[in-house]
Write a protein that binds this DNA or RNA. Structure first.
Lengths: 217, 217, 217, 217
DNA sequence: AATGAATGAGTCTTCATTCAT
DNA sequence: AATGAATGAAGACTCATTCAT
């Protein structure tokens, strides 16, 4: 469980290396013990370092937590963005790719869901965490809205892209929330299908799970 | 902030009265200080009683927390159910009424959102809280799925009611999550609109926020 | 387990009746839960009364404890004295009868041993309990010394009666202590034999367990 | 009152050093405040360390108490055994030396008597303490019985060595108990004399305080 | 640079006492 | 006369932080 990447020799790199180890320690500790059960000791253990090290690289445990959330959100956005762009130029495909990215490793992992839920909750009572959250959320929403707008244009229809973005983002969050609280809620594949249906439906298509005229019977 | 309802004289009612006060104390304390900041002291203060009282009515702080979540979920389900039924017989109207109930007082209140988020997070590390959560969630999802199925039948269309329920529930949760973390995310009215659009879209209507053929331009 | 003696109607007797019940509650509670585990609640439960009653009949829990020890010692002395006198006029028989009384019900009872040990320990840190203890112990020692002196005279020998008394009392206490801590140490019958041997030996007889010339070998 | 031995520099020795300090803290605190009055705070104060330290070296206060009793009994047995062996080969001399050891510093000390009484009492309600007690007591009794048997053989007499051991042990315990509860009961010298008399008497000699034919009268 | 020993504030829990009914 | 509801002080334990080595 301890951090085991190659250890750098350069003085200047040690700092980054240690901070990285501690941050990964935080995320693993939250996954294993929850935010409430995450102490300096559990972090140090998960990071494979001594308790005292934290004080050398972060002003306090709280500062380390904030930094960890920042890192989490950053990696998340990077990876999801990468996969979205990899889906090609079409806006609707990008939206669908985002949904898939969200529900597939490496983004979709129990450890990460757990950490997100913990930080969402922490955001309520910690200004610095709230700041990080707001910043990434805002970017995220704007990106999705832009994609919806582009997709509508591509399809020659009119939609309220802002509302569509709010809706999709809510679905994303809601599915993650549900899976974070209880991993057995439903299979990730189903979650993807639900997202795709929403996207299709907002963009006018009947969609995989959408309505179609009842075939008599 | 102290409990201010009429204080019962009957010996037999005191017990229920005090338990109620403590439970409300928990919910208020969570709203004010978060789960991590909720101590026996903050609960007692919010309930307008002494610290020692908790021990007389609950086996431990943890037991009180579980009981509080149960009460929260119970009240929530009751009120939302009531408003849904009040919307009439049509299934789609009931679904829409649920969305409205969710985003309007008395169900929609900052204090309640905060508590929900806190308990969702707590569920990850507390079996008893998870049990309560699972039970209410399961009922909730079944109810929504049934409504979707009925609505489809009424409209003579075919949908995957289960998936639609998962989607609507995710939207509900996601919107609440977003508003719990950051109340300024968007206005409740907008959240309602997003829900209604989803419902309409799943049931085949173009919907308020859905796509319509681009009018030239 | 609750006090179940006939309840008196006379106003003046109620006081004595209640005090008695509480005192018996203390002794039973100490036997069941130890001194450290004896709380106002365990006392009240053992006495079959409510928690609040204690305050009406004793100034405090500590006062009740002292009173309980006084009662314990008083009953003890009375019963042991009675049995000693019942053994007849001979001093050595009285001493032996005391030993028997000590190791036979009703004086010898696990509940009573436990209480004695607890109070002996409490005496170290409580002046009032120490006072009671000293008083009864002093009487006790004087009585035994007097019996030894008389027995020696009857047998026409000379002994240091004070020392003999200290020795016998130590044996009594030591055996009780051992049996209080671990009831399986040895059978009461054996304890009696040890006491009798000591008495015989101090009074010159070979005694049941004393030395006799080795029969050859 | 604070621990004042040389403080070791070696990392590896600190652990033993602190545990030792805390154990001595327990014994001193019990002597000063009794078992009931012994709190983490009094222990820490007596040990000259902070309250929080206890948790670093012992799983809980209870574990520390058990460990302290173990240490107490161990030291006791060691020192008494040493003095007994130093008395020479004769079994009766060894028995007498044990009595002397028991009533003379360093074994005989108010602080130690107090601790013993407290632990005897605690043994009634604590299994781990009872276990320690039983183990040392059993050894102790066997040793004394063996000495009595050997002494009888040396003197060419027959005795019930087991009973003699029970008796001597009871005297030892009873005298200690008496002196623990009330240090003014009698002088240690007198206690020694009482023990010696018992030993002599059990081994057939008239003994210092035993019976002798009345000289005239 | 890194460790882990040490501190003391903060939390939950227990419980003797008080008091309204 | 008796109850048990309520209080608040005190105790054990946890844990973030500091610091000597």
């Amino acid at each position: 469980m301890a951090a085991s990447l190659k250890r750098p020799a350069r003085q200047t790199e040690i700092r980054a290396f240690r901070r990285e180890a501690l941050i990964r320690g935080v995320l693993n500790s939250i996954a294993d013990h929850g935010m409430a059960g995450t102490t300096v000791e559990t972090i140090a253990e998960a990071a494979g370092v001594s308790r005292g090290l934290l004080g050398h690289y972060f002003k306090s445990k709280d500062h380390l937590l904030v930094e960890s959330y920042r890192r989490l959100a950053e990696n998340w956005a990077e990876e999801v963005g990468r996969q979205a762009r990899a889906a090609g130029r079409d806006a609707d495909l990008r939206l669908k790719a985002m949904a898939e990215a969200l529900m597939t490793p490496p983004v979709f992992e129990k450890r990460i869901l757990a950490a997100y839920l913990a930080f969402w909750n922490a955001a309520r009572n910690s200004k610095p965490i709230r700041v990080v959250n707001r910043r990434y959320n805002s970017n995220y929403r704007k990106t999705i809205a832009r994609l919806f707008a582009r997709a509508a244009k591509e399809k020659g229809i009119e939609i309220d892209a802002e509302d569509a973005a709010i809706g999709l983002l809510a679905i994303f969050d809601g599915l993650w929330l549900s899976l974070a609280v209880d991993p057995k809620s439903y299979a990730p594949a189903r979650a993807i299908k639900v997202c795709h249906t929403f996207i299709d439906r907002m963009l006018g298509a009947p969609g995989a799970g959408g309505a179609k005229p009842s075939t008599g019977n």
